[in-house]
Amino acid sequence: SADYSSLTVVQLKDLLTKRNLSVGGLKNELVQRLIKDDEESKGE
């Protein structure tokens, strides 16, 4: 998976916004949300 932890919070929020995901929470939560979304989209 992508190394989201190396991105800035601003970059993470931009990715979340593009996916229509919540941008609330700490950086670690944003990273986990993106990883979870990646895993769910692979399952389709």
Rank of each mutant, 00 (worst) to 15 (best):
R33C: 03
G43S: 12
L7A: 05
T17N: 12
V9K: 07
S22W: 05
Y4M: 03
V23P: 09
K36Y: 08
V23I: 12
K36Q: 13
A2Y: 14
K42A: 12
S41V: 10
Q11C: 09
D37I: 03
L21W: 00
L15K: 05
Q32W: 04
Q32V: 08
D38H: 04
Y4P: 02
D3P: 07
E29I: 06
G43L: 13
K13V: 11
R33P: 03
L30A: 01
S1H: 14
N28M: 11
E44W: 11
D37N: 12
L12H: 00
L21I: 05
K42Q: 11
L26V: 11
S6F: 07
Q32Y: 03
Y4A: 02
S6K: 14
G24P: 03
R19D: 03
E29K: 05
S6L: 08
S1Q: 13
E44S: 14
V10Q: 15
D38Y: 05
S41N: 14
N28L: 09
N28W: 14
G24C: 15
L34E: 01
K13Y: 03
S5W: 11
E39W: 11
K27Y: 08
L34Y: 00
A2F: 14
K27S: 05
R33S: 03
L34I: 05
T8E: 07
S1W: 11
K42H: 12
E44L: 14
N28K: 10
Y4L: 05
D38A: 05
E39S: 09
I35C: 08
V23T: 15
L21K: 06
R19V: 02
V31F: 01
E40D: 13
G25D: 03
S1M: 14
D37C: 08
I35F: 05
V31H: 02
T17M: 13
S41E: 10
L30Y: 02
S1E: 13
S6V: 07
I35E: 08
I35R: 08
S5H: 15
G25W: 01
K13P: 00
V23Q: 08
V31R: 05
K18F: 05
T17G: 10
S22L: 07
D3K: 09
S5F: 08
S5K: 09
T8V: 03
L12D: 01
T17L: 13
K27I: 09
R19L: 03
T8R: 03
N28F: 09
T17R: 15
R33M: 04
G43H: 14
E29D: 13
Q11F: 03
Q11D: 07
E40K: 14
L12E: 01
R19T: 02
K42E: 10
S5E: 15
V23R: 08
I35T: 07
K27P: 08
L15G: 00
L30I: 04
N20R: 09
S6Q: 14
Q32I: 09
T8M: 03
D3F: 09
E40I: 11
E29H: 06
E44G: 13
N20E: 07
N28H: 15
A2V: 15
K27Q: 07
V9T: 09
D3W: 11
R33G: 02
L15W: 04
R33A: 06
